[in-house]
Amino acid sequence: MDRVTLAHGSGGVETFEILERLIFRRVEDKLKRVGNGFGIDVLDDGAVIPLPSGDHIVVSIDAYTVNPPFFPGGNIGTLAAAGSINDVLMMGGRPIAILDSIIVEEGFPIEDLERIMQSFLDILKSENIALIGGDFKVMPKGGVDKIVITTTAIGIARKPIVDSPKPGDKIIVSDFVGDHGAVIMLLQMGLEKNVEEFGKGLLKSDAKPLTKLMLPLIERFSNYINAARDPTRGGLAGTLNEWASRTGGVIVVEEPSIPIRDSVKRYCEMLGVDPLYLASEGVAVLSVDPTVAEEVVEYMKSLGFENARIIGEVKSSEKFKGYVLMKTSVGGYRILEPPRGELVPRIC
């Protein structure tokens, strides 16, 4: 008998396969979206519902389950707030409200729950986002692993960004990639004490809302940003492969220009993991019209994202469709494959 495996939940090839089997092929096309909007027909960060005024509602939902729930740089509450806010931002929306649903295991320390919810609420406060509804349930001991938080974020977009990278576009990343995934991986392997960067605060999860980056960018460059994504599960490799298969072209990336923290590089090498598949929880990847790409990078830097840079571009090809081609540090080429299998269990 076929059974669900952890690989089905890691956001890679297997996740798409099981969703296709369970959901996508069973829903008729007109019920995959509202009117002329976008829904599970496009599989973006969130859904878009057109309003009579010409604006759009952007809605996004995500369940957060991370082991361990507390980690350097934040906790599951930080993730639950920042993650859904970022999903709305990546759709070109200005987040205005959030709803949460908490399932917690019997016996979970209330003090820990308080810390988690405080982190969650602190982010909503600083981003000026209303909490307009929610649910709270307790499962008997062993019925759930500690805590699961689901959040729905709602935003308003004048011009939603429904990912469709165009040939010629430059690919921009806002910051070091893979920090969150690397931190969680090291914790899950029980290496907390061996990582001296943790104690010194030099390596921590990047979980944070990207409001201060994305709102000004959307304001100024919305006509030039053809795709935006925060590379969570599946990492940068996952995002780029999804985009490549969506455009039907080839995305060419310069490996040495991808910003990866030295410590992340080193630990990944030790553990035989490729950082390009590790999740980031506070990084934006953009596909931007080449005429403004440099200007966008400079603007991102001025907003405090000094590691922002161009890492590659979208090319059209008659013969090859849906590939991500990596130019390596020595100038050779290889294919950056889409994420497969179980990389790191339950990271976000």
Partner: peptide, 21 residues
């Protein structure tokens, strides 16, 4: 080869796109 897509595909794509070292 499965993880890094060898078998000459990367070279073929690079050639088709006229990319160089």
């Amino acid at each position: 080869w499965a993880r890094f897509g060898s078998g000459g595909l990367a070279d073929e794509i690079a050639k088709e796109l006229s990319l160089t070292i």
